[in-house]
Amino acid sequence: MSTPQTATLYPIQAPAAVAQPATPRIAVLVPCYNEEASIEKVVADFKAALPGCTVYVYDNNSKDRTVELASKAGAVVRREPLQGKGNVVRRMFADIEADVYVMVDGDDTYDASKASLLVEKLLAEQLDMVNGARVTDWENYRTGHRFGNVLLTTLVTMVFGKRTQDMLSGYRVFSRRFVKSFPVLAGGFEIETELVVHALEMRMPIGEVETPYKDRAPGSVSKLSTFRDGFRILWMIGKLIKEERPMQFFGLVALALALVSVVIAWPIFTYFMETGTVPRLPTAVLSTGLMILSFLSLVCGLILDTVTRGRREMKRLKYLEVPAPDFDPATVKGAA
């Protein structure tokens, strides 16, 4: 009779813990287009404010000495040929590996000395985004920019919630898990809107720090067009409402169509109740068609709301794959 074989048990070994660096890798991201008047100072100021950081300047087809001066100041210079700030941010988020990302414009309008404060807040509270809310006497804003900033921020606040005072600020700090879970779709200045809405929709922990905002350096010109870029941002907000709040979007369309249908049909209905005949048959057909379209819009909203929920769950799972920032804020304290 054969002897039964005894299974050999091997102890299960836990995976070796990955050593956490003592200090976070901080990357300063500077998208640039024709900023020779200020880029050298921006690079120097942020290297002084955040010792040990790496400043990346992404040139977006500049026709001046931006690349030369950024390299001279000690920045890592790379190029993105697709024109537009959103395209540059997409490339930066994809290429650069770091634990903390500081994004700032290259026009020297933001206070570099506040960078350590923003990073400390991100690390101390384990946030995913800290927004640098601009504080100014408004003289550094064009009238159209002031009105547009208030209007667009209010619109986003009404739909997605009020968690920031300055949606269009170009000065922000991000965690790694924000950057690596954010699908950048915008091509231009509407990127700021997309960043904020992404954080609000994912219910990420975010914070805000007030930072001084100053005028541009002499010789530096704003690339933001008040009307063209304002309408692009407004269009982006509309698309984000449609994609992230489809029930509300298509529900409002359904309500508007239903109201128009009822208004058109009411005189026909009252005449029919009095005489038993239907006058103006084309108007009756139009009213019926509008009501059918109203119900179709409502059904589209219900279906897309379910699809959006599934997309949001997938983005959330991707977000959770990256660990939260877990560093001692004292490692950047006093850097300014």
Rank of each mutant, 00 (worst) to 15 (best):
E208F: 06
E321S: 09
I268W: 00
M247I: 14
G310I: 12
S261Q: 05
S287C: 07
R316K: 13
F250N: 15
M202W: 04
R309P: 00
T270D: 11
L281G: 00
Q248L: 15
K318A: 05
L255K: 04
M291F: 15
G301C: 01
T306G: 12
I206Y: 02
S220T: 06
K214F: 08
F227W: 04
S220C: 09
D229R: 01
V221K: 12
R311S: 00
E321F: 03
Y271P: 00
V299W: 05
L317F: 10
R228E: 15
S261D: 04
A258R: 13
L255C: 00
K223R: 13
R312V: 01
F250S: 07
A284D: 06
A324F: 13
L298M: 11
E244F: 08
E313K: 15
L259K: 07
P218L: 08
T306S: 12
A265R: 10
T288S: 13
T270P: 02
T306H: 13
I237W: 06
P282D: 13
L298V: 04
S294P: 06
S261W: 00
R203I: 01
G289I: 10
D328I: 03
F227I: 10
L317Y: 13
V260S: 07
I233E: 05
K318S: 02
W235I: 02
L252H: 06
F250W: 15
L234F: 15
R232H: 15
P267D: 07
P212I: 02
T283R: 15
L293K: 05
E210S: 14
G251C: 06
V263M: 03
K223C: 01
K242C: 05
I241S: 02
R228H: 14
T308Y: 14
F250R: 09
G238T: 12
S220V: 00
L255M: 02
I233V: 14
T211L: 04
L320K: 08
R316M: 10
M273Q: 09
S220G: 06
I237M: 01
P325C: 01
R216G: 08
P205F: 07
G219S: 07
S287F: 04
F295P: 00
W266R: 06
G289T: 11
F227Q: 03
E313T: 11
M202V: 00
F295A: 14
A254C: 07
I303K: 13
M291Y: 07
S294N: 10
E208V: 13
P323G: 02
V209D: 09
T306I: 10
A256L: 14
F249I: 03
R228G: 12
R203N: 12
L257C: 11
R316S: 05
W235L: 03
A254W: 07
